[in-house]
């Protein structure tokens, strides 16, 4: 295959790109960086709303469940201890075992 005789190949060899020089390019980049660093917290939150709402719901749910479960476990343990004390007072089998 002779590529030198290919008109497309010749055209590509001759093709040079001369983009217009944007004198403001550097400034524009720094301005965008500056805007980003001056972005407020609320703007940040709004732009990541979905993620943070999901994280918040998950963490509050886990915390609520943990708090409630811990309290219920404590209530159960205290109630069991009180029932044991109450019945030990009334049950001769316990008192006989104690050797009263």
């Amino acid at each position: 295959m002779n590529t030198h005789s290919d008109p497309l190949s010749k055209a590509l060899h001759c093709w040079t790109v001369k983009p217009p020089v944007d004198a403001n390019f550097r400034n524009a980049v720094w301005q965008r960086i500056g805007r980003r660093s001056q972005e407020s917290w609320s703007v940040y939150l709004r732009s990541h709303a979905t993620t943070w709402v999901a994280v918040t719901v998950l963490m509050l749910g886990v915390a609520a469940f943990t708090g409630r479960s811990t309290a219920h476990a404590r209530v159960r343990a205290d109630r069991d201890a009180l029932i044991a004390t109450y019945l030990a007072d009334l049950d001769p089998r316990v008192q006989a075992a104690q050797g009263h």
């Binding site: 963490m59 509050l60 915390a63 943990t66 708090g67 409630r68 309290a71 205290d78 109630r79």
Partner: peptide, 21 residues
């Protein structure tokens, strides 16, 4: 969020406890 979760956990614990018991 962590602070809010801690607060929520403590509140749920507090309201699920039975102080008299």
């Amino acid at each position: 969020i962590v602070a809010a979760a801690l607060g929520t956990g403590l509140l749920c614990y507090h309201f699920s406890c039975e102080p008299a018991l």
